[in-house]
Design a protein around this nucleic acid. Structure first.
Lengths: 327, 327
DNA sequence: GCAACTAATGAAAACGTTTTCACAGATCCT
DNA sequence: AGGATCTGTGAAAACGTTTTCATTAGTTGC
């Protein structure tokens, strides 16, 4: 049927061991290496990776578990992870959990069965809080959302500082009733809320925070109601790119699109953030860097499994555009 | 070390064959099945998927090869593919080619080595044209871009009709010098160009088509030059979402943002398409349907390998917004 | 010149499953 | 009642590699 290493060995007049060594990095004489390579070409041999993985006990595969690849933040991070993985001769298996802890548990088990070499995981708050050191029997790096300190390597944004920066910026623009809408499922959203509240208290303002599912539709629904009420804020901090989009929609539905009528500032700079009039003021996350750093941490951990747990905190960059300007 | 099926067998007091059957779908008495399940729980056994794949000669893995997961079209399609795959107990390996034929060849070989059960592939024009029936030894479905008729199953948009619809719409709005900018690497872009040119000729207008790399930066650069010249068009058809974004940028840079000063119509409806003032007129592709149909074709092909090649053509839907309105 | 090492190679074991094969016992048909 | 057919089970082979182990030939050191 399919051509295997035995066929190559026969064609080259050597043993299977020699073929294996010639294709990998064993000690093989130059002459035989040539013969083997010729035989490989002649037979059209393709190594069977399942067999290789079984025997070598190394899958060269990394698992990537995120909430939803359609969230532009995860899209960008995953691309960076994949680039790093393929550059290192590894493959990536991607799973979407939709922020559902049950699916997280399911996929974690699947990753164990895959015997993945390493895992990159953006857990919900529920799952993250339950995670202990040595919990997973796979080396793991948490991204975007860290668990309890010391449990796992992680790479996160300085969410407190970033959210504070947004709130302070809106305050400096002259807004005085600055509301905030934050995601319900991630530790990241909690940290952003804390940063927002701290900044407002520091300037003597009252925080007005609400919580919603971290998607555009939920944010829009809540905000349409909130912004129509008497206690409506004159500016908003949004906890991620999807919720910021929901806020823009809500503002337009209520006729609050004019600059200054509702200040908006949020997270995630996207290719279209400057095209939405009058431009969205956002914290830009270093998405490529997050993915690359996660892979770097993972590789370090594989090399030195017992080194102390590391947490890499990256800073966001405030990009001021028209949505936070005051009339 | 790690617990294997032998350990489970010993704990349950049965043979490994019985454990395998109890976990799969072999004929096992209810009593033994219970014992095995208890033993699995007691030992914390996780089947080794590499071993399973090797022995069963079935990887339950599908390969997904696209240009760039950050292109929102591919993001959405890939999510649909993954949902269908995991629902069927399969895994997905994703590869980004960046429209590079060399990387396409590399990843195709990789997929063969993985012994993927099936392949979903969006090839560049170069690669697609070179593909023959029986070329790949893996069942494959081409998406977005089809190869030579009869070579492989495929699911594509009716690009000719969709592009014609855009051109006709702009004509009906009163635009008379309707330009077009199309991608250079995909058969899809060629078909869209043909549809655009056909529609214009039908109404007696002269097509003004140009070609560029299918990304926002390249489109913007070309258009800034084109729109500044004497022969500038008064409306544009753009060949995909990224190029449409480039067109919006170019128009703004040249002060052509006012409604009616430059009509714009393109492909790919995205969550923010209505937020970019005055709203982008686009052909919406049924992205989820494309992914789901591709998986359906693939499963059918796996069940009946010798059935005739099928091509599923889906229709786009014109969404008219402000960008194509005339002053 | 001979022991001791080194390098290259092949035979065979090993990786952890599923599947084949054989067999024992139960059930069925005339 | 006696073969034929089914059902559940275990022993062992098989999947296609890599790796261990032994062996040979070649080199070095004294």
């Amino acid at each position: 049927m399919s051509v295997g290493i035995r066929d190559v060995a026969r064609a080259a007049g050597v043993s299977t061991a020699t073929v294996s060594r010639a294709l990998g990095r064993g000690p093989v004489s130059e002459a035989l290496r040539q013969q083997v390579e010729a035989a490989v070409r002649a037979t059209g041999y393709r190594p069977n990776l399942s067999a290789r993985r079984l025997r070598s006990q190394s899958t060269q595969t990394i698992g990537l578990i995120v909430a939803d690849i359609r969230n532009p933040f995860f899209t960008a991070v995953s691309r960076a992870v994949e680039d790093a993985a393929y550059a290192a001769g590894m493959r990536v298996i991607l799973c979407n959990t939709d922020e559902d802890p049950d699916r997280e548990a399911l996929y974690l088990r699947l990753m164990e069965e895959e015997r993945v070499t390493g895992l990159i995981f953006a857990p919900t708050r529920v799952t993250a809080e339950a995670m202990k050191a040595g919990d997973l029997d796979v080396p793991a790096v948490l991204i975007d959302r860290a668990g309890p300190p010391g449990a796992h390597d992680s790479v996160v944004l300085d969410n407190v500082a970033a959210a504070a920066q947004l709130a302070e910026h809106l305050w400096a623009q002259g807004y005085r009733r600055i509301g905030g809408l934050f995601g319900a499922t991630s530790s990241t959203a909690q940290e952003r809320q804390a940063g927002y509240e701290g900044a407002l208290r520091r300037v003597g303002a009252e925080p007005l925070a609400r919580v919603a599912a971290p998607n555009a539709a939920a944010a829009e629904a809540i905000l349409v109601e909130w912004l129509a009420g008497d206690d409506r804020p004159d500016a908003l901090v949004l906890s991620n790119g999807l919720m910021l989009m929901g806020a823009v929609r809500a503002a337009r539905r209520l006729g609050l699109a004019a600059p200054g009528s509702l200040g908006l500032a949020g997270f995630d700079n996207e290719p279209w953030s400057d095209l939405v009039e009058p431009g969205l003021t956002v914290i830009e996350q270093p998405v490529a860097e997050i993915g690359a750093q996660a892979m770097a941490l993972l590789f370090d951990r594989l090399k030195a499994p017992d080194q102390p747990v590391r947490k890499v905190t990256l800073s966001g960059r405030l990009i001021v555009r028209g949505s936070s300007r005051r009339a």
